[in-house]
Design a protein around this nucleic acid. Structure first.
Lengths: 341, 341
DNA sequence: GTTAGCACTCTGCCTGTGAGAGTGCTAAGC
DNA sequence: GCTTAGCACTCTCACAGGCAGAGTGCTAAC
């Protein structure tokens, strides 16, 4: 979409219209706009402006003789050119700093849980957070003997994240373990977690029986040392808020679908790559279930991976506040985690 | 509630009515019942029976000249006296056995996640599952040196569940690790996970600095090797199904509340102590948000704690199927986890 | 005790009507 | 030429009335 050229007056009217609609959730009438302090125009003149905005498809009327409502394009113009992100208040910033410093010592899963909780509380919207995607790259895998017939497998990702689990491997010599570890590192080193299982299954056919038993045990562990399911987990909080929006009155079912599908949410979040904060409005979302929602997503590097968080709500959302918040959070997280040794 | 004495005929009519209503979600007319093969009565006679059931408050009519609908009491009578739990089919049983055996090696959190997933898929309803409350009892704790300046801590619960995590412990000799492990086992062996942190903090004051550093590292790990937060977690799956029930058409908001509140769900689940399978119908639920829902909950001992799972749906649910399923699952889980060494 | 018949009642749906909101257009004013 | 006041027009929403259909309750006959 090229930048629709708007006059100053058109921009002002569009901004007023959007801000009023975000507050009221109802079509905005020309007289309501004309009544605004900053507008010294009659409702008739405003109507002329509205007509031109409608021609550019930035607003529409639900039906003849109703007020106007912004279109996705209208919101897009607003987000790109008219609004300025609001910096969170001192109180909120302090609160965030405090929480984040508490998160430093924890694992990625806890960070994601806490993040979604925090964002949901601050926005009163559904908040989602994903731990670094399955794109995590395996750095090394160790097998440490432990007691009789047992071993601990430790997976280290390039991000520095570690995950360990104990295996039961009977009738396996320490030397076999070492050989298994050597092979595993050769096959899987540098690979993505998501591909690991396939690579492993491919390679192990040629391995000696005892070595193979170790690998079988590794694959067997359902807690998913190697499964992408665990390498990428989705947390959300604030479902209740979604249901309170009038626009989703009768469409609860589709909200249920979204909440239920972690893959869906992760997908929706992962789609945007550009910039620290991405705004995805209505139809811009790939998922058809989200065609009437907007998403403000932020990301932060943590080790080699990308953690993500997002606010999800109706297209009629408080973009300046949410963009400001997500930007601030992303910034702080990035600082904290890349500054750490 | 004392057992309302019902004649055979009344029982038959009540059962037919409930089963028809569960299928159709609509008030059941006298003629529909009279049309059933097993009833050789006219609709007029059936109406007489219905009147007597209505007097006992087992059924009601939404309004004059509508069909009848079961009350909570009606469902209760049905569950207690009229229905027989359905044993899951061979296919389903096989599937469950397979899944459960896969779960044996995993930690309690994964078990809960998988359980909720399994139950939701088999019932097409919202399924919730809670890991054993912080009651899990510690069996032993091992510290295995690993690379330079690192160690892996392996916590084994009496239930057989294991959790491991790697610690960074610089300037600590292997002998220090051994001493730390010895002390940890002495202090924490046999204690509940919930108490572990306090016990550890109490004991470590007297420990030598290098040993203490190890323990500090252990406490520092927020992923919660010892934290109760992880000792009890709620998982659910199948939110989408809730929204599809006609009875919750306009009440999405209250569903949102329930989904959002893990404490709520855990509470609802924890309330019933008696028997392996508890059925809680409509108003019987303590939570006001669940007054129009029923819950079929099962529990299984795992180590010293209690794991729980439940199906949640409208009061109009398939009690025989769900009770049968939950009973089977509880049984199998109990066997598997108490049989293990 | 059971049943057929019938009047009664309540819902759901459709229709029509009136008020209210908001527009589009036109003609007059700056 | 831009702005504005005035007015007719349109569309929604809410409410009332009417009609068909479903299902009941009651009564009288079997």
């Amino acid at each position: 979409m090229r930048t629709a050229e708007l006059s100053d007056r058109e921009e002002k009217v569009l901004r007023l219209l959007i801000e009023s609609h975000v507050r009221s959730a109802r079509p905005v009438s020309s007289s309501a706009i004309a009544a605004a302090r900053s507008v010294a125009l009659s409702s008739a003149t405003v109507r002329n402006v509205l007509r031109s905005l409608a021609e550019k498809e930035l607003i529409l009327q639900p039906h003849t003789s109703a007020g106007r409502v912004p279109t996705d394009r209208g919101y897009r113009y607003y987000v790109d050119f008219l609004m300025r992100p609001t910096k969170p208040s001192d109180r909120v910033r302090g609160l965030i700093e405090e929480r984040i410093s508490g998160l430093m010592k924890t694992d990625e899963d806890t960070i994601a849980t806490e993040l979604s909780r925090m964002v949901s509380r601050l926005t009163k919207e559904l908040a989602v957070s994903v731990t670094p995607a399955a794109g995590g790259v395996l750095k090394r895998l160790d097998l440490v003997p432990f007691g009789d017939g047992r071993a601990i497998a430790v997976v280290t990702l390039r991000s520095g994240a570690e995950r360990s689990v104990s295996l039961s491997v009977s009738d396996v010599e320490d030397a076999d373990l070492e050989e298994a570890a050597r092979l595993l590192n050769r096959w899987l080193g540098g690979a993505r977690v998501a591909e690991a299982e396939k690579l492993l299954r491919g390679g192990m056919r040629r391995a000696r029986p005892p070595v193979r038993r170790v690998m079988d045990a590794l694959l067997d562990v359902r807690s998913g040392l190697l499964s992408p399911q665990h390498a990428r987990s989705v947390h959300y909080e604030g479902a209740r808020y979604m249901f309170r929006h009038p626009e989703f009155e009768g469409e609860a079912a589709c909200l249920g679908e979204i909440l239920d599908s972690e893959e869906m949410l992760a997908d929706a979040l992962g789609a945007h790559s550009a910039g620290p904060v991405a705004v995805c409005i209505g139809e811009e979302n790939r998922l058809k279930e989200m065609r009437r929602m907007s998403l403000v997503a932020g990301s932060y590097r943590i080790g080699g991976g990308m953690g993500r968080m997002a606010v999800i709500g109706p297209t009629r959302m408080k973009y300046p506040k949410f963009v400001g918040l997500v930007r601030f959070l992303s910034d702080r997280l990035e600082n904290v985690f890349t500054a750490a040794p």
